[in-house]
């Protein structure tokens, strides 16, 4: 990989990547369909989680992508997900089954943000999120940011101070960049997604954190490119596009585009034998394909608002120096 210049985005490449990914997601749409035992025996990691990700990211693409055909394809996927959730009836059932769990509320927030509500779910939410129990942290600080974002979307009182929670995340602490293992990397990308409402509110990222990300993203990306971990490459590219001043690393985008298969699917890693679901093209591809479509959308939006700031490798170190002025 060459230096970290921020070239003008290649909109043709981004659109090809996004339309390919959406075409794959459309072709595999039935694999997101929930089974009859979704609330009992089914593994939520193979049912609710993929469908929730589909809803979150398809909705964002539907809202933001500049091309009508892409928005339309995403809208169909989002509508499919809402139908799968029984137009909110399933959210209500999940809340009744597990009133202490945060995931039904997070899942409901995706739709509530789009104005889709269900009366029973809304009634349950008031009770569930009003409990003292609700304020007991159900996970790490990154997950708490996700819950806070869901509360904001739904319109219930925030159970904690988002600033104080953010301050304790990997991004909020600006953790040592050399200690970023896989778990910390996924935490960091989600700190960004929850903070910026998945790239919709880039202005929420204060300058010191933007400078931190701009400084270290090149070496994190380089590491994931070497390992060919395409879902994390996609997430980090999405983070680059969530910066108040988006960064478009053209060479990384070309590598990701080259990893995309002819049918539009993007494998989590180049050698599927490394992964747990090597025999199942849906399970090996759905997450990275969704992430790729999401990142390509944000990068595409960023190009519409950012002037070309092509620079050479030496010049491109300048954004990093911003961090020296940071507190």
């Amino acid at each position: 990989m060459s230096g970290p210049p921020s070239a003008a985005a290649d909109t043709a490449l981004l659109d090809s990547v996004a339309t390919g990914a959406l075409s794959w997601l459309g072709a595999y749409r039935d694999r997101f369909r929930l089974p009859a035992d979704v609330t009992t025996d089914a593994d939520p990691n193979l049912t609710l989680k993929p469908l929730g990700e589909l809803a979150e990211l398809a909705r964002l693409i539907q809202e933001l992508h500049p091309r009508a055909d892409v928005r339309e394809a995403a809208a169909e996927l989002f509508a499919f997900a809402w139908e799968q959730f029984g137009r909110g009836a399933l959210h209500a059932e999940l809340m009744r089954n597990e009133p202490q769990a945060v995931y039904p509320v997070e899942l409901y927030g995706v739709f509530a943000r789009a104005g889709l509500r269900h009366p029973a779910a809304d009634a349950l939410l008031t009770t569930v999120t009003g409990l003292r129990r609700w304020r007991v942290a159900g996970g790490d600080h990154t997950r708490t940011l996700s819950v806070l974002n869901a509360e904001r979307r739904i319109g219930v009182p925030l159970h904690a101070d988002p600033g104080a929670v953010f301050a304790l995340t990997g991004l909020g602490l600006r953790a040592e960049p050399w200690l970023l293992d896989l778990r910390a990397a996924y935490g960091l990308t989600h700190d960004v997604f929850h903070l910026t409402d998945w790239g919709r509110a880039r202005h929420r990222m204060a300058a010191p954190f933007a400078a931190y990300l701009r400084l270290w993203l090149p070496c994190w990306l380089e590491g994931e490119l070497e390992r060919e971990l395409w879902d994390l490459v996609g997430e980090l590219l999405a983070v680059a596009a969530c910066l108040p001043r988006p960064w478009y690393p053209a060479d990384v985008w070309r590598r990701l585009a080259a990893a995309q298969r002819p049918d539009g699917g993007v494998p989590e890693r180049s050698d599927p034998a490394d992964g747990p679901y090597r025999d199942d093209p849906f399970l090996t591809c759905y997450h990275s394909t969704l992430v790729t479509a999401f990142a390509a959308t944000l990068a595409r939006v960023g190009t519409d608002t950012t002037p070309d700031d092509s620079t050479g490798p030496a010049r491109a170190t300048a954004p990093g120096r911003e961090s020296e002025a940071a507190p």
């Binding site: 970023l180 400084l215 270290w216 090149p218 070496c219 590491g223 170190t317």
Partner: peptide, 11 residues
Amino acid sequence: RTDDLARGFVR
């Protein structure tokens, strides 16, 4: 190139 050397350190 201090920032780039620091990136190399991280890598």
